[in-house]
Design a protein around this nucleic acid. Structure first.
Lengths: 218, 218
DNA sequence: TAGCCTACTGAACATGCGTTCAGCATCCGC
DNA sequence: GCGGATGCTGAACGCATGTTCAGTAGGCTA
């Protein structure tokens, strides 16, 4: 079984890569602790011993997955901003299923407190901050009284659908992270980021006044 | 050891309650799978067997924690909206550490796909929707082209700091979910929800036009 | 051909886990 | 005083897990 020669499917790529792909998918779906080395080995069509042989330990495998994820993220970001922008976005809209493992794994990285999770968050935060600064500079976005805190908020808000994808899909009618769901969210998002929520600045003025009063007290 | 009579600390409450409190704290801190029944028993000062004796199984204990969390959430919400509003908020600002286990446990519930996590999300979503509708009715907030989707977005955005608390604290200078951090976020949040991000409606108009065009095509 | 390295396996091992069980106190109704 | 719940324990059991290890197959260099 599992001869070296051709068979359709994922047998044409290296066993190491197959293990890594299976691990990313399963870690993203079930989480690190609920995924056993045996599960990953079975999904990749190899023996559990080979997983350890190639990655040293389960934790080593996770490390490799994290690193691979960071690389993918850089690639996609570069594509989405560079010459490949159109192609990348079309690919996303055409086959959202393909990216689901990546999104789920990213969510897992961010929520379980590992070192690479911090790295990826800091990266996203920095990019968001840079994007906001550039937009303020070219006039498309408003300036903020606290650009750093605003960048943080916008980053958090952007990550929420990624991490709570399951709840989002359930609330919007069961289905996948499809173009339909994305379309449904586009308009409300832009409305929110264009006109805000409040119809006037009553609340904002009150908060400003309260903070000023507190500052004077010191 | 551990006689029934008085000793300072958490010995005056029932062992069942001590186990539940320890479980909520540890599940919230480390997650369900990384917390063993033995850990919980040690933290509560009882034997592992007693944990099973009172809750049937580790999963039963988790169920009880979930239910307790839902009850706490209802209580706090009622307090925060009712007569106790001022007292509850002051308590929060005075001793944020006290609420950390609750917040962490809530984050865990929402991210690990259990049934009670769905319940609590749906609850929060419904309350957010009702709050938005009421605010639109009394004129403090703008109407939306898609109130359901907007409620979902606002809920997701509100939950993001809860779930990514660790990253938030790290980005804002290491420290706890303190009044200082909350104060730092208040103004940018209100700015975001009052004036939005974009300085004009160019993007929004473009999206509306694109969607109109697509609808006409069908 | 000989030797060696790499990819890979099946079987076993040690450990930590959730859970069970027999038994020990203590309290409460009779 | 007594019988039976109730609260609780220490020790053990069975199991799944991550990991190790001896060994096989196949390709590469000499």
């Amino acid at each position: 079984m599992r001869s070296a020669s051709a068979s359709p499917g994922p047998d044409d790529i290296t066993a190491t890569a197959r293990i890594r792909d299976a691990a990313v998918r399963l870690f993203g779906e079930r989480g690190y602790d609920r995924t056993s080395v045996r599960d990953i080995a079975t999904a990749a069509g190899v023996s559990p011993a080979l997983v350890i042989h190639h990655f040293g330990s389960k934790d080593g495998l996770r490390d490799e997955c994290d690193r691979w994820m960071l690389a993918q993220l850089s690639d996609k970001r570069a594509d989405a901003l560079g010459a490949q922008a159109g192609a990348t976005i079309q690919q996303w809209l055409a086959e959202p299923e393909q990216f689901r493992p990546l999104v789920d794994y990213l969510a897992m990285m961010l929520t379980d407190g590992g070192e690479h999770g911090r790295t990826v968050f800091d990266l996203l935060l920095a990019e968001t901050g840079a994007m906001l600064d550039a937009s303020v500079a070219d006039g498309t976005m408003r300036a903020s009284s606290d650009p750093e805190a605003r960048a943080l908020l916008v980053t958090l808000h952007g990550l929420a659908p990624v991490i709570l994808r399951g709840h989002l899909e359930r609330a919007l009618g069961g289905d996948i992270l499809s173009s339909a769901v994305l379309a449904r969210l586009t308009l409300p998002s832009l409305e929110l980021y264009t006109d805000g929520l409040y119809s006037d600045s009553t609340m904002l003025d009150a908060a400003r006044a309260a903070i000023d009063a507190q500052n004077e007290q010191l």
